[in-house]
Design a protein around this nucleic acid. Structure first.
Lengths: 329, 329
DNA sequence: CAGCGCGACAACCATCGGTTGTCGCCTATG
DNA sequence: CATAGGCGACAACCGATGGTTGTCGCGCTG
């Protein structure tokens, strides 16, 4: 099925530009060559193909029927070759990705899934509003964290992981030795929030949903301080995603939450219409990993998601998750 | 995003072949050029890209990391260019399509739907087994007819039309003047088969399904003889698709069958993995026409299909109708 | 008619892309 | 160890390609 002709794409490029401009001089200018050089390129291409592609005459330059048939496939060939060159030169600018939304940012998971050439530049965002601003301004290409209402217009997201959340307790807490804890059992405990609770959507809604009235706030000084603050009071508990690797030490314990298990919903977020060539690759990599690792398993009878999460009302929000959103199984 | 480099695809071709063979001499042979010429092509490509694509040494030729990244996109660029050349030269070989399965082969319908450049070559197949052999041998590219069990492995099909079947009767038949006939009314008639009935799957199953015990066979000498044989005995009837244009004459009549209406299921059949560039175009054209003309309307309460048809058990046969099969509405 | 714009032809020169002949390197074998 | 064979690169040669500048032929307009 190979026709035996391997084109010189410089000639194809000349033809495509001339066909678009219908003026040899302008096309030559775009290529920074002389009109005569461009004319020669086209003549040679026509000779190789054995077909007249452009009619030249008093009324100007016009496409022939053969030229018309060739134009779109020629564009595609040029595009494919551009992709090939980009692939070998690795000339894509690295993706800039910010992670936000919890004390523990799963940078390792992100790096593993998003790894490839060129390696993405990973950074930290403070919260959804600031990350959204950075996306819309073009300071970053994508973000990774928990998307909740309200989501600004102009952004798109895709839910990629529903991670179980554990309770993390002071070692002196009455439930510290339990094999598992039902959220309802925490009703009389003190919820410890590393920062203003009204700004920590997940914790806030967890407390509201399960009737946890006692709440205290501290400053967010990182995971170590957070754990130390928990250990300081045997009534305190808080929440962390299950995969967090905790430092060794008996001062705090993590216990799985069940009936229901709260899930932390990690999503990829990007600007609508963003055209970085590697963005689709990143999204695809996460989609594949989500399937492979069964990250999107969800059973409403077993699990809990806050109402503000993508599984809820965000479906009819200002930026509908076209091609995204959860698929509860 | 244009990188400013327009490749000479002769160089790319040389690289791809060398990468596949990992031997410059063999690759050169395939291109009918000298090893030195091939070596030069690759060296020039490497110079243009500024990357070493192949390592040459005592252990033979090996791909570099850059070469690995380039190989698949390079293949795609070559394929895209081949398509461009084929588009301008119109060098696709015409599709060869055989029609089989009934006295009346709907060549006009086929030609209308499949029409395009280059025009397909239409031929006649005898029955499903012989057509299957021709497909698997590569003698034809596609076939059009009624697919029924058993279907040989290595073939794929797509149902494209469910055509109502009429009764065709001798003019002297007691039901010849009826506006419509229920199959059950034909129980005491004589089914006329143009050929061995056990070889005519549709007729055979119709007779079994509706309890038509009286059957007679003749030779298949074409439509004219068939009609003449019917006219010769007032008890005789047979079946024809409703769209058959009958010659003028009062010797036979066609009457619609209802309650249920038998449907003749026309499908496209092709070899799995067939790579003729126009095959997808053909399939697409039929899919579009089927939608446009509502060819796939089917109501199990109103219509009848033999058990051996794609709507039935063929779904779990040796060649599952991936991407095909009926969608009863 | 003259002037202008446009693409092609001509002459020139550097580069490309093929050939044949030869060389350098590596591996296997006796 | 020496020798033979295989493989890809270098060298020299020559025709083709692909760019340049200068010029020509054609069509259109005022």
């Amino acid at each position: 099925m190979v026709t035996g002709v391997d084109l010189d794409l410089a000639q194809v490029r000349a033809f495509v530009l001339a066909a678009e401009e219908l003026h040899f001089g302008h096309a030559a200018e775009e290529l920074s060559i002389s009109q005569q050089a461009l004319s020669k390129r086209i003549a040679r291409l026509e000779s190789v193909l054995g077909r007249r592609l452009l009619d030249r005459g008093g009324q100007g330059v016009r496409l022939t029927e053969a030229g018309r048939r060739f134009l779109e496939p020629a564009r595609q060939a040029l595009a494919a070759a551009d992709r090939a060159v980009a692939a070998v030169l690795g000339t894509h600018r690295p993706l800039r990705i910010d992670v936000w939304g919890h004390l523990y940012a799963p940078m390792r998971t992100l790096a593993l899934v998003a790894g490839g050439e060129p390696r993405p530049e990973l950074g930290h965002g403070r919260d959804l509003p600031s990350v959204s601003t950075a996306l819309l301004r073009g300071d970053i290409d994508a973000a990774f964290g928990r998307v909740h209402a309200p989501l600004p217009a102009g952004l798109r997201y895709r839910l990629v992981r529903l991670e179980p959340v554990d309770a993390v307790l002071s070692a002196g807490h009455p439930l510290a030795r339990a094999a598992a804890i039902r959220p309802a059992q925490l009703r009389d405990s003190l919820l410890w929030a590393p920062g203003p609770l009204h700004r920590l959507d997940f914790l806030h809604r967890f407390a509201d949903s399960f009737g946890i009235g006692a709440r205290a706030e501290g400053a967010n000084l990182g995971l170590e301080h957070f754990l130390a603050d928990l250990a300081a009071d045997p009534r305190r508990f808080s929440l962390l995603p299950a995969d967090v690797p905790l430092p060794a030490g008996p001062a705090v314990r993590t216990v799985p939450l069940v009936e229901p298990t709260p899930l932390y919903a990690w999503s990829l977020l990007w600007r609508s219409g963003a055209d970085h060539p590697l963005l689709d690759t990143l999204i695809g990599a996460f989609v594949r990993e989500a399937e492979r690792s069964r990250w999107l398993e969800y059973d409403p009878a077993r699990d809990w998601l806050p109402e503000s999460d993508p599984a809820g009302r965000l479906r009819s929000g200002p930026a509908p998750p076209t091609g995204g959103g959860p698929s509860p199984t």
